[in-house]
Amino acid sequence: MSLTDPAFIKQLDALNLLARRVLKGSLQADRRTERRGTGITFADYAQYQFGDDYRAIDWKIYARTEELLIKLFEVEEDTTVYLLLDCSRSMGGKLDYAKRLAAALGYIGLNGLDRVVVHGMADQLTTIVDSVRGRGQAFRFLRSLEEADVYGEDTDFSACVRSFEARTRKRGVVLVVSDFFFREGYEEGLKLLQWRGHDVFCLQTMAQDDLKCPWLGDLEIECVESGQKERITVREREAKRYEEAVERWNEGLRTECAKRGDGEYDIGCSF
């Protein structure tokens, strides 16, 4: 199904409504942040400090208690949603699912008047959608996303993150959509993203063949990214070891995310 297909867009609309209900309708131009500023929504009181805007002093409280307290308001700002989409060759058939996932998240963001940027990741970072905002940009966003295809050789997540940081000045919500099967690991990349103050969410897409080893016997395995080859004999024992290794790898990702406070979600694919 195409991303610009009316049926798919209809599904995205339904998803948007669902998201609004879940988030209690607060996405409309008022994404709440922990930062305090000059908004209109009262957040808290604080002791007056030198240099604070005296207009924010609550005189009624001063009259009652002779203490200078200022009112704090939530900052109302538009948030940038960064979608880092793994476009390496290992994504193969999973890329469609990954793109649909990115489309759904981006669509919700656009409807919340957030700025949405989509980058592709492989051996280097590419830009798939360059900063769109507002519902009117949804079609452009979807079409650009649909045109994205796999590229590059071996995925270098750290290099892509470094490249992403170099291009990005504003902090935002970073959604990494990938299988997270990076030869060099995912720890350094996630650490960099968190260090820059992004809200990081890892969305892992996996195919059934990634989790299980259905082949037995003499095989010549070939890396889908690098083209490396190796002759092996897979018996039940090797198949089990592989499944355990994949399980350990994914468990490591969950642990890393939990340690850094990042969100981590598994998205399964059934092919």
């Binding site: 010549e220 395995i221 070939e222 690098s226």
Partner: peptide, 24 residues
Amino acid sequence: TRPRRQVVTVFFLWEKILDQKTSR
């Protein structure tokens, strides 16, 4: 006896498994 060709996405994990097999 030519082995079947199989494209894999997680090649580096296979390498780790094969490295554990000393008898190969």
